[in-house]
C-alpha cells in the first residue's frame, strides 16, 4: 500500500548486490535485473501501451544502470534510481517518436496472462479500469501507477518523474478522481451531496 514516507531502499542483501555489481560482478547485477525487471516492465508497458517498446525500454534502462552504477549513491533508493532512468528513457522515446512522427499505439496488445479464477464480471471491471488508465495523460498515468502499484511515496514519485512533491501529489489525486468519474459516474463528487 502506498505510504507517505520514503520506501525502504531494499534489504541488506540488495545493498551487497549493488556493491558487488559496482565492483563488476555481473551475477550480482543479474540478480538485480531479476528483482526489478517485471515491475519496471509492467510500469513501462502501461506507459507505452506496447509490449515491445516496453521491453526495449527495460533493457535500455538496465544497460544504462549498469553503465552508471558508479554514479549511484550507496544507501539511497535503488528502485527509485532505476525507475528514474526508465522514465528518462521513456521521455526520450516520446521525443524521438515525435520527431519521426510516430505515435504510441492507441490500443494495447492483449495481455497473455491472467488468473484462471477471474470471473467474467471481474474481467470486465479490470478491462474497464485498463481502458480508463490508458486514457489518462502519460504524466498522470505514470504518477498514479508508481504510487499505487509500486507503493512509492509522493516524494519518491516526484524524484522519479523529475517534478515537485506537490505536483506528484496533484497528479495522483487528479488521476484517481478521473478514474472514479469514468468508472462510477453516478458516484462522482457533485452528484450526491448529503
Amino acid at each position: 500500500m502506498p505510504r507517505d514516507q520514503e520506501a525502504i531502499p531494499g534489504d541488506a542483501g540488495e545493498t551487497e548486490r549493488i556493491e558487488a555489481a559496482r565492483a563488476g560482478d555481473r551475477a550480482a547485477f543479474a540478480a538485480l535485473v531479476e528483482a526489478y525487471w517485471d515491475r519496471l516492465f509492467r510500469w513501462l508497458f502501461h506507459l507505452t501501451r506496447d509490449r515491445h517498446r516496453a521491453e526495449d525500454l527495460v533493457q535500455e534502462t538496465f544497460l544504462k544502470a549498469l553503465a552508471g552504477l558508479e554514479s549511484f549513491r550507496p544507501g539511497s533508493n535503488f528502485r527509485a534510481w532505476l525507475f528514474r532512468i526508465g522514465h528518462n528513457n521513456f521521455v526520450n522515446l516520446k521525443r524521438s517518436e515525435k520527431r519521426t512522427k510516430q505515435t504510441m499505439p492507441e490500443d494495447m496488445a492483449a495481455p497473455d496472462r491472467g488468473s484462471p479464477g477471474d470471473t467474467v464480471a471481474n474481467k470486465e471491471a479490470l478491462d474497464a479500469v485498463t481502458a480508463a488508465v490508458a486514457d489518462l495523460p502519460p504524466d498522470f498515468r505514470s504518477a498514479l501507477l508508481l504510487h499505487v502499484q509500486e507503493g512509492l511515496s509522493h516524494r519518491e514519485v516526484a524524484k522519479i518523474l523529475g517534478t515537485t512533491e506537490e505536483t506528484a501529489r496533484w497528479r495522483v489525486f487528479k488521476a484517481r478522481q478521473k478514474l472514479m468519474s469514468v468508472l462510477d459516474p453516478e458516484l462522482t463528487p457533485n452528484n450526491k451531496d448529503g
Binding site: S71, V91, N92
Partner: peptide
Amino acid sequence: QALADAADT
C-alpha cells in the same frame, strides 16, 4: 549526479 540526469534528459 545532476549533470547525469541532465544528460539523460
